[in-house]
Nucleic acid binder design. Structure first.
Lengths: 261, 261
DNA sequence: CGCAAGATTGACATCAATCAACTGAGGTGG
DNA sequence: CCACCTCAGTTGATTGATGTCAATCTTGCG
């Protein structure tokens, strides 16, 4: 359950290393949010090359990372869910190489880099957690490379659904076997690198196969095991509790290995 | 030219934000290397799930990031060149989600996390540069997602060659229009997500088209413009000097935009 | 020399893109 | 309320790109 004492930042690292944050750090994080905003429709939070003076925490809704090619076509290279500090890397990079857009209705919180700088200077442990959270995105990127190069259309789509399913459940969104997204088949096509027409066909196959049903953003997992099998999905890369990231993953004094690896 | 005063770490961030490092910081970095090692053949530096007690700087040679699927097939999700702090993210993650392997003959330097922890506590600016360097990898990951989902075989291969060409020249390796790698066609297949047989066909097309010639690891760029055009290659994501990362990218007091963006 | 790994070629099969036509839902203005 | 529009989604036919299988060649090396 989201921690309602921290209505804005309660989902940050939830299901990963949130337990590694002290109360004081959680409080500091919550206070970093200068203001929040509700954004509707397909709106850019930040554009490639913009100078970043604040970073954005996604509080509700979804966002995508997109790269536009020279012909102006937008290609989705990442999807963000509530709790993601979506452009925290802008703090170190200063300018992003890609766009960030919300889709549907989203609520975001803005953190001025000035505040971030101050808190990171005093709080090395929190700084490390911020770093960690940007590395989670990189791990997801790697898995997307894997899925894009090694899986066929049906596997890619299954993989994306499986990932979203796990990620949303980590932040207590979505039921056991269903969840809601503002994604259209057009988004799915860009995410999976296939044509919209083939998305439609592939969704039919998944539906007819009793695996997963996608109807206007409502996703129902009919057979999670079959889904993971089609996707060759192994959630280790999400570094969820009990996965690769152990209880004291940031504590150098616990070098025991995980039994499941 | 590599800075020969720093024979081990002279290529770290070379061509990107190395100029943002003070002499003192460069010295500190060089002293972080506890020992170096020469590794031959296709050898793992670090395996998925291993507990990381040190991080590895690639001094000479090349390395790959690979994810093994459940059938034991290895899939390459990244390539590293000299100067890359290849598993710096292991410092914050503690365990990686993928393997790191050198290919060919490589020289690496080991940095104990203990030392890293100490220097980062005292040197926030250097810590930020370390963070920055892991974000560069993430930017490359995003571009790989883009190339894997949006380009056909010939474009993917051209894109990889263009990227390698740029990255090697940033660290002063390779001539103006040629360079050497320990990569085989089997590696290229995994990198581009196509079959080895199709790699062979595609390389023939690129050679016959007068674009680029690949012969046993010797890569000769015949027509760089054609190469970039086939690859739709825009090097902005590499954050090289003069690109997205401006002179004082880490200096919050210079919010001017780049004219070329 | 002879082997093993890498690379090449041809034939064929499969997957997914493209083109074209159509349906259905939601919104808007007369 | 209906006519109309637009956008999302669906379906069939065709084409092109790429995977797979099988055979052969090349190179480096013990």
């Amino acid at each position: 359950m989201a921690e309602h004492i921290y209505p804005l930042t309660g989902r940050f690292l939830q299901g990963r290393l949130r337990h590694a944050m002290e109360e004081r750090e959680r409080r500091l994080l919550e206070d970093l949010i200068e203001r929040t905003e509700v954004i509707q429709g397909e709106t850019a939070i930040l554009r490639r090359g913009d100078f970043c003076e604040y970073s954005t925490l996604l509080i509700e809704g979804m966002a995508i990372r997109a790269i536009c090619d020279d012909e102006g076509r937008r290609h989705i290279v990442g999807v963000q869910v509530p709790g993601d500090f979506v452009d925290l890397h802008g703090f170190a990079l200063k300018r992003l190489d890609h766009d960030l857009c919300v889709i549907g209705r989203a609520r975001v919180g803005y953190v001025p880099h000035e505040r971030l700088r101050a808190v990171m200077a005093d709080e090395p442990h929190l700084a490390r957690l911020f770093w960690f959270s940007t590395l989670l995105d990189a791990a997801i990127h790697r898995e997307w490379i894997m899925k894009s190069t090694q899986l066929r259309a049906i596997g890619r789509m299954a993989h994306f659904f499986a990932e979203l399913w796990y990620r949303l459940r980590m932040v207590d969104l979505g039921q056991e076997s269903s969840f809601q997204t503002p994604l259209t088949q057009i988004h799915l096509a860009s995410i999976c690198g296939i044509s919209t027409i083939h998305v439609s066909r592939t969704l039919r196959d998944l539906r007819d196969g009793g695996v997963v049903d996608f109807q206007r953003g409502q996703i129902t997992i009919s057979d999670g095991d079959k889904l993971k099998s089609i996707a060759r999905f192994d959630p280790a890369y999400l570094y969820s509790e009990g996965g690769l990231a152990v209880e004291n993953a940031l504590d150098i004094d616990s070098p025991e290995r995980l039994s499941d690896l």
